[in-house]
């Protein structure tokens, strides 16, 4: 019992530290990659290759003046950054990030909590983040904020439907909601026969994967679906009136959400921590997992550097008239294939 509590505490601290560091360095990665894609250098002043930039940014934000506008709703204004920050971190509670291991004679599972309804938990927690955005926009007392919040809520709930539906195909094949069992299923040979490829669900559910990716980008409010922030028309959307660490909490939450959906995508479609040579070196599994998440993150940034923003009516029409029917079709076709 005591041992379990100790192990859980260690894992929680390590995961939180890893996620926060990941968020910090995603900002650097984004600025570097977008910079090089536009033939610029990106940040390169703080430390070698600008590697200390996130640290400098964080310190700067802590020492910034905190401005509370006059006509805010004080309590919700305070709570909103917390409400978007906590769920963003909470997603990582059920994601398996490595193969089970033994350290100093103790069994050590590399997942915080092996919940048997892990997939449901992930989707429930991901959709909680929207409360933070809506409350922030509503309580700020600024027109840009309220418009950003209203747009964002309409966008996020519209894509939530397709997001939830896009993985039903995988669940029909796998017949489980536990993320650990999903990863274990993906370690088998492809369709039980092709021995040189793993049974990653991206091979049996390519359409589901594309739908998941699109909806995930819209869910995390990233370009080309970054309507709520649309800086050329809404200044900064829902966090216009936030400054100092409160602003940075929204910022961390956005990047944590990106990493979270990347991790979920990697776990459900790309085999999680699965990769070659795991029998001899089980610790490689963590590296594989991080690599897969990194690929997702790079793809996100690449999209941002490539595509212009959608128009609002196009965005809503795309979500309801393209993604939703396609996801439904994918589900039914998968069900027919599995049963017949």
């Amino acid at each position: 019992m005591l041992e379990m509590i100790l192990f859980a505490s260690i894992k929680v601290v390590v995961v939180v530290a890893a996620v926060l560091t990941g968020c910090a360095y995603s900002t650097l990665l984004e600025r570097k990659v977008v910079g090089h894609m536009q033939h610029r250098m990106g940040p390169n002043t703080a430390g070698p290759y600008g590697l200390l930039t996130p640290l400098a940014d964080g310190l700067k934000l802590i020492f910034k003046e905190e401005i509370k506008p006059a006509n805010i709703e004080p309590i919700t204004y305070m709570l909103a950054p917390m409400i978007s920050f906590v769920p963003a971190i909470l997603t990582f509670a059920v994601i398996p990030f490595g193969k089970d291991n033994t350290f100093f004679g103790h069994d050590f599972t590399l997942v915080l909590s092996d919940l048997n309804v892990g997939v449901l938990f992930v989707f429930a927690v991901t959709s909680l983040g929207i409360y933070g955005i809506v409350l922030a926009g509503w309580s700020s007392g600024s027109k840009y904020s309220i418009m950003g919040a209203v747009r964002s809520s309409a966008q996020m709930i519209s894509y939530e439907v397709g997001y939830g539906l896009s993985i039903v195909g995988v669940l029909i094949i796998a017949n489980t909601l536990s993320l650990r069992e999903l990863v274990e299923l993906q370690m088998l040979p492809l369709w039980g026969t092709v021995s040189f490829l793993p049974n990653w669900f991206i091979f049996s559910q390519p359409l589901g994967f594309i739908l998941f990716l699109t909806c995930a980008i819209a869910e995390t409010n990233r370009a080309p679906f970054d309507m709520p922030e649309a800086e050329s028309e809404l200044v900064a959307g829902y966090h216009t009136e936030y400054s100092s660490m409160k602003f940075s909490m929204f910022f961390i939450a956005e990047y944590a959400n990106m990493i979270a959906v990347s991790a979920v995508g990697a776990t459900i479609f790309l085999g999680g921590w699965h990769g070659p040579f795991l029998d001899t070196m089980p610790m490689l599994s963590v590296l594989y997992f991080v690599l897969k998440v990194f690929c997702f993150m790079f793809f996100y940034i690449w999209l941002r550097a490539t595509f212009p923003r959608f128009r609002y009516d196009q965005l809503m029409a795309f979500g309801w008239k393209v993604l939703f029917p396609l996801a439904l079709l994918n589900t039914i076709v998968t069900a027919f294939f599995v049963i017949l």
Binding site: A8, V16, M78, P81, V86, I89, A93, L112
Partner: peptide, 17 residues
Amino acid sequence: PILLLMAVGVFLSVVFI
């Protein structure tokens, strides 16, 4: 672990604010 993670998240955000 889920509750602990939540508590750490809330604690961190209070510290930030």
